[in-house]
């Protein structure tokens, strides 16, 4: 029985890498006595996979983990059992059973929402609300947004204009765009929210919010210091028009039709 859970990861847990978070969940499943399925063989492991690894230092309200259960479980039962085993900085916020034919969250991932904030005791040209508004609208109005994209193998100039689906300093406007209500965002009150952004994600093209910061700094002739910013993931989406190897954006044909991963393939919706 395929299932998917959504969790938040904040505070000191930002410093736990994603493989260790996986190990953390494996142990938590055992402590919670949740009957999760195992692979075959002499060293069986729990059938478990992440939608997308979260970099060290980032926080999130929108992480997803796919698992396979031996039996169906009720949402409330699952959440209360797993959360009894979580520390105060990782909380499972949603759970759904998936249709048996549904693809893994990793395979369908198409976009992510982020909130970028300024850490306490740091300064940035973006902290002044007027300037920020101006800088963001300038970026939004550009024809091309070229940045140097580094991969393990190469470095090349890439235009990310079409991969920035929405960029705003205004939470309401962002919520209107995504159609979601983010509720209480688990970020420390000491940080200053700067902007919200939705970006292409997935195995073919994956745009990190750091690239948007780099583009903003480049545009303004400022030096980009990653230590100044707290990046917080808000949500992840799958694309209903998903086709292996293809990337759909808002401007392609077909365009991407985004659905939050907690609903994508869910047995309990439709």
């Amino acid at each position: 029985m395929k299932a998917r859970l959504k969790f938040s990861k904040i505070g000191s847990m930002r410093f736990i890498g994603h493989l260790d978070v996986m190990r953390y969940f494996q142990k938590a499943m055992k402590r919670a006595n949740i009957e999760i399925s195992y692979s075959q063989g002499f060293s069986p492991h729990q059938l478990m996979s992440f939608a997308s690894p979260l970099g060290i230092g980032l926080s999130s309200d929108g992480e997803y983990l796919d698992i396979v259960l031996e039996h169906a479980m009720e949402k409330e039962d699952f959440l209360s059992r797993i959360n009894a085993q979580m520390n105060e900085e990782i909380t499972v916020t949603d759970f759904t059973l998936l249709e048996e034919e549904s693809k893994s969250s990793m395979a369908v991932l198409a976009a992510c929402d982020y909130l970028v904030a300024l850490k306490p005791d740091k300064t940035s040209f973006l902290s002044d609300p007027e300037r920020r508004k101006e800088v963001l609208s300038h970026l939004n109005s550009r024809e091309k947004i070229e940045i140097l994209k580094k991969t393990k193998r190469s470095e090349k100039m890439t235009d990310i204009k079409d991969n920035i689906y929405f960029l705003t300093e205004d939470r309401k406007a962002f919520e209107n765009f995504t159609g979601l209500n983010y509720g209480q965002i688990s970020l420390d009150e000491t940080v200053l929210p700067l902007f919200y952004v939705q970006l292409t994600a997935g195995s073919v093209v994956n745009i990190k919010p750091e690239l948007v910061l780099e583009a903003l700094c480049g545009q303004e002739g400022e030096i980009f210091d990653p230590l100044c910013f707290q990046i917080h993931r808000l949500e992840m989406y799958g694309d209903l028009n998903m086709k292996k190897g293809e990337v759909h954006t808002l401007t392609t044909e077909p365009r991407c039709e985004l659905v939050s991963l907690s609903k994508y393939g869910s047995k309990w919706i439709n």
Binding site: I10, G11, S12, M13, F15, I16, G17, D20, I56, G57, N87, E88, E89, K119, D188, P226, L227, Q230
Partner: peptide, 23 residues
């Protein structure tokens, strides 16, 4: 959230910051 002895700046500069956060 747990209070940490080391700042984010330091934790992000070093190898395996999980060595120092406890919890």
């Amino acid at each position: 959230m747990r209070k940490l002895a080391l700042s984010d700046d330091i934790l992000l500069k070093i190898e395996k910051p999980a060595r120092y956060i406890g919890g």
